[in-house]
Amino acid sequence: LHIEINVNGLRIELHNVSEELAERIREILEKVDDREEARRLAEELIK
């Protein structure tokens, strides 16, 4: 499954994740104000 999410102008592509996991990642990242911090957090979440 390939999912693309957009959060605060940051486009993140997720591969091989469930829709539920992608939604949780999006919800978490929406709470982060700083774009660079959101990017770093996204990288950690999808490892």
Rank of each mutant, 00 (worst) to 15 (best):
L29T: 01
D34T: 05
R24Q: 12
E37V: 09
L45V: 09
I3A: 05
K31R: 14
G9T: 02
R35T: 11
I12E: 00
K47S: 13
K31I: 08
S18T: 15
E36R: 06
I5H: 01
K31A: 13
E20I: 07
I46L: 14
A38I: 09
L29H: 01
R24S: 06
L1Q: 11
N6G: 04
E27F: 11
K47P: 03
L21N: 03
G9K: 01
H2A: 09
R26E: 02
H2S: 11
E43Q: 11
K47H: 13
R24E: 05
L29P: 00
A22N: 02
I5A: 01
E30M: 14
E37S: 06
V17G: 11
V7E: 04
G9N: 03
N6F: 06
E13K: 10
R40A: 08
H2R: 09
L29F: 13
L1K: 12
V32W: 08
I12A: 01
I5N: 01
H15S: 08
E37P: 01
E20F: 10
G9I: 01
D34G: 05
E44A: 11
N8R: 06
I28K: 04
V32Q: 07
L10K: 04
E4A: 11
I5P: 01
L41G: 01
H15R: 05
N6E: 15
E43P: 01
H15G: 05
E36S: 08
A42K: 01
E27K: 12
E27W: 12
I12G: 00
I25H: 00
E13H: 10
R26P: 00
D33A: 13
K31F: 11
I25V: 13
R11V: 15
I3N: 04
V32R: 03
V7D: 03
S18P: 10
R35A: 14
K47R: 13
L1Y: 08
E23S: 11
L1P: 10
L29W: 05
E13R: 12
E13S: 10
E4D: 06
L21Y: 07
R40Q: 09
E13N: 09
H2V: 15
R35W: 12
E23N: 14
G9L: 01
E44Q: 11
N8H: 09
E23Q: 14
I3K: 04
D33F: 13
I12P: 00
L41Y: 05
R11L: 15
V17I: 13
I25R: 00
E36A: 06
V7Q: 06
A38Y: 08
I46Y: 08
R35S: 12
E4I: 15
R35P: 15
G9W: 02
L1D: 09
A42P: 00
L21C: 03
H2W: 09
K31D: 08
S18F: 03
L10Q: 10
G9A: 01
D34P: 03
L14P: 00
E23F: 15
N6H: 12
E43Y: 15
A38M: 11
E20V: 09
A38F: 11
L45F: 09
A22Y: 12
I5Y: 03
E36I: 09
N16G: 14
D34N: 11
V17K: 02
I28N: 02
D34E: 04
L21A: 06
H2Q: 07
K47C: 03
E19A: 15
K31V: 09
L21K: 02
N8P: 07
L29A: 03
R39F: 13
A42T: 09
E36H: 09
R40W: 06
I46R: 02
E44G: 05
N16P: 02
L14W: 06
I25F: 05
E36C: 04
H2T: 15
E27C: 08
V17E: 02
E37G: 04
H15C: 10
I12K: 00
I12Q: 01
E19H: 15
E43L: 15
E27I: 10
A22K: 04
E4K: 05
I12S: 00
E44C: 07
E44K: 06
R11G: 05
R39Y: 14
V32T: 14
E36F: 07
A22V: 15
E19M: 15
E19N: 12
I12T: 02
I25M: 04
E4M: 10
R26L: 09
D34K: 03
D34I: 04
S18L: 04
E30V: 11
L14K: 00
G9S: 02
L14V: 07
L10E: 08
I28R: 05
R26N: 02
I3Y: 09
E36V: 09
S18Q: 05
A22I: 14
A38T: 04
L29K: 00
R35V: 15
R11C: 02
L21D: 07
L14A: 06
E23L: 13
H15Y: 11
L41Q: 09
N8Q: 05
R35Y: 15
E43A: 09
G9D: 05
V32C: 02
E27L: 15
L45K: 01
N16L: 08
A38N: 02
R39I: 15
I3T: 06
R35F: 12
G9P: 01
R40T: 06
E4V: 15
L41S: 02
R26S: 03
A22P: 00
I28S: 04
E44D: 11
L10N: 11
E37T: 11
N16I: 05
E30A: 10
R11Q: 08
V17C: 03
N8A: 10
E23D: 13
A38L: 13
E19Q: 14
H15F: 12
A42L: 15
N6K: 04
A22M: 11
L45A: 10
L10P: 01
E30L: 14
N8E: 06
I3W: 09
N16C: 06
E20K: 08
V32M: 10
N8M: 02
R24L: 08
E23T: 12
I12C: 03
E37C: 07
E30K: 11
I46C: 07
E23W: 15
I12F: 12
N16D: 10
D34R: 03
A38P: 00
L10D: 06
I28L: 13
L21S: 04
G9Q: 02
R40E: 04
E27T: 10
E30T: 12
E20L: 08
L21Q: 10
N8G: 12
I28H: 03
L21T: 09
V17M: 09
L14H: 01
E20D: 11
N8D: 11
V7K: 03
L1E: 08
L41C: 03
D34Q: 04
E43F: 14
E37A: 09
L41A: 05
K47G: 12
I25L: 09
R40K: 11
E36L: 08
I5S: 01
D34M: 03
E23P: 02
E27Y: 12
E13D: 08
E36D: 14
